[in-house]
Computed example of a mutant assay.
Amino acid sequence: MAVKTVVRKSLSSVQRTAHQVVHAILLQSKIRRIRRHIDPARISAVKADKGFMRSSEAFLRRHFPPRRDLSWHVAYAAASGIRDAMYIPENAFYLHLEPRVNPRATALLYSDKNMYDNLFAGAAVPTTLGRIINGRFFSKDYQLISAAELLEELRSSGDHVVVKPSVESGGGRNVQILSPGQLEGFLADGLGASAGENLLFQKLLRQHEALAGFHPASLNTLRIVTFWLRRGVVVISAVLRMGVKNAQVDNQAAGGISCGVAEDGRLKRFAYDKHFRQYSEHPTTRRAFAGFKVPSYAEACSLAVSLHRRLPACGMVSWDVAIDTEGSPVLIESNLRYQEINFLQLNNGPLFGRHTDEVLSMM
């Protein structure tokens, strides 16, 4: 038994190391692609700032030894104009920080959106109409039903239905909005027959008209990041995410943009896309960002903080929160793995801001 345990642990260690090596290579390729979209003159100006470069290198050597690659620092500073040594490089975050604050097994346990009605009971979430869990059909209250009964439940809403994978749906992958007439064909295609199928069916949420004004076709959501410090849970960063070009999702990975939100709930001057390109107005609707007051921002932050307190095993959570037509915050998703930090640092500066020393001292 002891030998088997040693072998199992050795294999696990080799797999983790291989995963880290592959991930590191992919991230290096990613930063090279990003830098091609940034004005070379701005990159040169940042590199010429010896004070910034020295302090950035000292920061990395102190907290992430022997790391000295300043590629991410240079990209963030050149694109945003914010020169701050406390930026967290993506490779340091994904390979070292995130796995420590949110252990993989714990993150996977809490990431299934089909469990939100239990995990976050009492909180506002989009109305659940039905589920597919491990290939089986369930009602909104977790009763096992037939495909015909699920179809009846979905049609009962009389409205469009949002269908999303309940696990691994980051970046808006495979999220669909179906009209009542499309539901039967969707289920008839054999979805759910696979033993691994996990889907969540929800009533389409209508958003606040002020947020719809930026891009009506997508549900434009707040990404609110909370961290569990020694004194409790706090909001460390927030942005408003918006779709573009009539896309139905607002995710940056799917082409969307994001704009930083100040502590008073007002949008900052610029938004950014995944290529670090800067916008002073929405590229589709031409609506300016600066000074726009996000409705119910304080309430949305309070929701995120209160829900994080239900996840004591997770140090950091990125919450996607919508504001409905009545001005109430509604939880769309909690993100515990691959939380995406680039748009946060482009818009708001270093990920942990004034909490950086405390956060890193807890690692």
Results as ranks from 00 to 15, higher is better:
102 N>L: 06
211 L>M: 05
256 G>L: 02
156 S>L: 14
249 V>M: 08
47 K>Q: 14
199 L>H: 00
69 D>F: 11
248 Q>V: 11
155 R>F: 02
52 F>W: 15
228 W>D: 15
95 L>R: 12
44 S>Q: 13
344 L>R: 13
192 G>P: 02
256 G>C: 09
210 A>W: 01
314 C>Y: 00
251 N>V: 07
119 L>T: 08
201 F>M: 02
353 G>F: 12
77 A>R: 04
94 Y>N: 10
207 Q>M: 02
233 V>M: 01
201 F>H: 00
293 K>R: 14
317 V>F: 03
173 R>F: 05
355 H>L: 12
137 F>P: 00
150 L>V: 01
93 F>D: 12
240 L>Y: 02
39 D>Y: 07
202 Q>A: 08
190 G>P: 05
175 V>C: 07
319 W>F: 13
111 S>Q: 01
279 Y>L: 09
33 R>Q: 06
338 Y>R: 13
361 S>C: 11
252 Q>G: 14
87 Y>P: 03
42 R>F: 05
95 L>Y: 07
257 I>L: 04
108 L>D: 12
76 Y>A: 08
333 E>W: 03
189 D>L: 01
167 V>E: 02
21 V>F: 12
62 R>M: 13
1 M>H: 14
224 I>E: 04
154 L>W: 08
215 H>W: 11
132 I>N: 00
212 A>C: 10
359 V>A: 05
216 P>L: 12
337 R>P: 00
184 E>A: 10
269 R>K: 12
237 S>V: 06
180 P>S: 03
166 S>R: 07
180 P>W: 00
286 R>I: 15
171 G>A: 12
192 G>Q: 01
118 N>P: 00
38 I>W: 06
62 R>W: 10
348 N>F: 14
319 W>G: 13
213 G>K: 00
15 Q>M: 10
171 G>E: 08
276 F>Q: 07
155 R>K: 14
60 L>D: 12
43 I>D: 11
129 L>T: 11
1 M>A: 15
310 R>D: 03
130 G>S: 11
119 L>M: 10
210 A>T: 09
327 G>Y: 10
224 I>S: 03
236 I>D: 15
303 L>R: 09
311 L>H: 08
36 R>M: 01
186 F>K: 00
213 G>E: 01
311 L>M: 03
113 K>N: 01
304 A>H: 06
75 A>W: 10
295 P>R: 04
195 A>T: 02
111 S>H: 02
97 L>H: 13
150 L>E: 01
128 T>K: 04
285 T>C: 03
168 E>W: 11
291 G>L: 13
246 N>E: 15
191 L>P: 00
234 V>E: 12
302 S>A: 15
172 G>L: 11
129 L>Y: 01
77 A>M: 02
312 P>S: 09
205 L>S: 08
245 K>A: 11
329 P>V: 02
157 S>Y: 05
196 G>L: 04
217 A>L: 04
37 H>S: 15
273 D>M: 12
216 P>Y: 05
11 L>F: 03
186 F>Y: 09
190 G>E: 00
165 P>L: 02
62 R>T: 14
356 T>E: 14
327 G>M: 09
152 E>H: 12
167 V>L: 13
113 K>L: 00
261 V>N: 13
119 L>Q: 05
316 M>S: 08
168 E>H: 12
266 R>Y: 10
52 F>Y: 15
319 W>L: 04
123 A>M: 06
256 G>Q: 03
323 I>A: 12
357 D>G: 07
85 A>P: 11
24 A>K: 07
193 A>S: 08
226 T>D: 09
